Amino acid sequence: MKGWRFVVNLRWAAYLAVTVLFAVACGLLSNWQFDRREQALAEIRKVTENWDREPVPLEQVLPTVDSFDDDQKWTPVELRGSYLTDEQVLARNRPFNGRPGFEVLTPLQLDDGSVFVVDRGWLPVGNEQDYPDDVPAPPVGEVDVVVRLKPGEPVLPGRLAPDGQIATVHLPKIAETLDAPLYSEAYGLLVSEDPAPDTRPLAALRPAEDEGSHLSYAFQWIVFGILGFLGLGYAIRNEYRIRNADEPEEQERARKRERKRAARAPDDAEIEDRILADR
């Protein structure tokens, strides 16, 4: 079949359909990477806007025990109360700089009777692997505390924990053991305690303000989608050359391509020079 009429058949229609589906998939993956970048930028904005703020009273930021807005993440707040040491639990499977460990969660009973969970910091696994070798005790009696707010975590199906530990910082789970209203939407990463104990778990680090490679990945998926159509065009053009090889115009194009290849090919002297240079 001469000319371009060969493309009007089911085979090339199927190739086109596959190419279109591939391009759509690439477009969806590209949008997913753009969305992930926006999420990363939103997290960076929360760090830059909230991390270094002056602490304010907890009730000024969270007027009720069930109030919290994600834009308040990392906001420093001040609390006063007494630690409920007997209700302390460990959040397991908490890596820190590549090391496995735990985070120490100690409920703090405030002067109004409500309870706020304080993450006092990180401890490495101990010799028994399933518990730290030592858990520094919190201050006894009334204490002034500064924390940075963080949202509670969901339950992860299949994640179990032994007594005295929890798989995730799921605040309603901690509330089950308390006889007082608990702030159920947010807890706090410890910044300081007054009076300060002699030792305390390792404090949380400022999150890295890095948006990652999502933008470059997004553009790569766009390029892949374009390459799919370029590949289809190349395949169509190649078959056209084969089917129309005896046409004068196509023969002339073939001769031009051959002359270009011959012009690019090194002569015997250049080949000999390269061999001598490699010795």
Results as ranks from 00 to 15, higher is better:
G233T: 03
A161T: 09
A218V: 07
S192F: 00
A161H: 03
H170P: 05
G188L: 01
A161P: 09
R255G: 10
Q165V: 08
K173R: 15
R255T: 13
E250Q: 14
G164Y: 04
S213M: 14
T168F: 00
G212W: 00
D210M: 05
K256P: 14
L182R: 10
I242M: 15
I242Y: 14
K256Y: 14
V191Q: 01
G158I: 09
G225I: 00
A218Y: 04
A186M: 02
A203H: 00
S213H: 11
I226D: 10
R241Y: 14
R206M: 02
Q165N: 06
Y187F: 04
A208V: 11
A180Q: 06
A254D: 09
A167G: 15
I236W: 02
R159A: 15
P248T: 07
A180S: 10
A167S: 14
Y217P: 11
P157G: 07
L182P: 04
V191A: 01
G233Q: 03
P207N: 02
P201S: 03
R206G: 03
I226F: 11
L202S: 12
A175E: 07
P195N: 03
L178P: 01
F229G: 11
V169L: 01
E249Y: 12
G225M: 01
Y240G: 07
R237L: 11
L160C: 14
Q165R: 12
N238P: 13
P157S: 08
A161G: 06
G158A: 08
L189R: 08
T168E: 01
N244Y: 10
Y234Q: 15
I166N: 10
L232H: 05
N238G: 14
A204L: 00
L227F: 12
L182T: 13
E249T: 11
F229S: 12
L160G: 14
F224M: 12
G212Q: 06
T199S: 06
P197A: 01
D210P: 02
D179L: 02
P195I: 04
K256G: 15
E252T: 08
V169T: 04
E239H: 15
R257W: 15
